[in-house]
Computed example of a mutant assay.
Amino acid sequence: MGHGGDVINELTTDHREVDDLFQQIEQAMPGSAERKQLADQLTIELVRHSVAEEEHLYPAVRKHLQDGDALADKEIADHARVEELLKDLEGLNADDPEFNHVIVKLRTEVEAHVRDEENNLFVQLSNACAPGDLEQLGDKIRTAKKLAPTRPHPSAPSTPPGNKLLAPGTGLVDRARDFVTGRGK
């Protein structure tokens, strides 16, 4: 499964990539620089994915699904917990004893969120939206990920219009920091 296609294919592909990064972290030597690099890559992918969902997927959920507001609010709350863990992880070296603990908590949160999206939210969205709408939403998600921040910003807005206004600028600053530091290469 590659990137492209409708929103469900795009986000499911992201989910599999995140699963793979968690496995790579688990297999890397404890305390190694490789582990920290993989954690940085995981953070980049999770933040970009979350921002794109918050900008485009959850407004569509609110619009198209019965109880959409409650569903979107629950998903955004999941993201907030993940983002706090990512912020904790960002400040840790791979040899810090807390690093493994945060990775385990993060994986638990992310896996629960992914299961809920794939088994509940995506099914409902697929039934409620026309294929063309899902394709357009996939395009919007891909564009948003290109402009999204790459670092956790727990205090940033998670709903429109604030997130759509601030995310591209924050993303530009994050990508500049990443370029200078070599993070995510």
Rank of each mutant, 00 (worst) to 15 (best):
L57P: 01
Q23L: 12
A28I: 02
V7Q: 05
L137A: 02
R62A: 05
I103G: 06
G138I: 09
H79S: 02
Q37M: 14
R177P: 03
V110F: 05
D78R: 03
E84I: 05
L65D: 10
R35W: 01
D69Y: 02
E90I: 04
A128K: 12
S158G: 01
T170G: 13
E135W: 13
K74S: 12
D6Y: 10
V47T: 06
N119E: 14
Q24I: 00
Q23Y: 03
D96F: 05
D6I: 07
A176S: 12
K140M: 09
A70I: 02
D96V: 06
L57Q: 04
D14T: 03
D133F: 08
V180S: 12
G182Y: 04
N163T: 11
R81Q: 14
A72F: 01
K74E: 14
H101M: 13
E111N: 11
E84C: 00
Q37E: 15
E17N: 09
P59D: 02
I76P: 00
H3M: 14
D139T: 09
A52T: 05
R177K: 15
G31K: 12
A176L: 15
K145R: 15
A128H: 09
T170Q: 15
H64T: 06
I141T: 10
T12R: 14
Q66L: 08
E109F: 11
V47R: 12
L121F: 03
F179Y: 12
E118Y: 07
I25H: 04
N127G: 12
L21A: 00
G171Q: 05
T159F: 00
Y58A: 01
G184C: 06
A130P: 00
S50H: 07
D40V: 05
R35L: 04
P59M: 03
G162R: 09
M29W: 11
D69F: 02
R115S: 06
Q41T: 08
D6S: 07
G2Y: 08
V104L: 13
V110N: 01
L21Q: 01
L21C: 01
S50G: 11
Q37C: 07
I8G: 02
L21G: 00
F122V: 03
P97Y: 08
P160K: 12
K74L: 11
D96Y: 06
R35T: 01
R62L: 02
V104C: 01
K146I: 01
I76V: 11
K185C: 06
V18C: 03
M29Y: 13
P157H: 04
D95Y: 12
V18F: 04
H3I: 10
R151W: 13
E98D: 15
K145I: 02
A130V: 10
K36V: 06
H101Q: 15
V180H: 11
T12H: 09
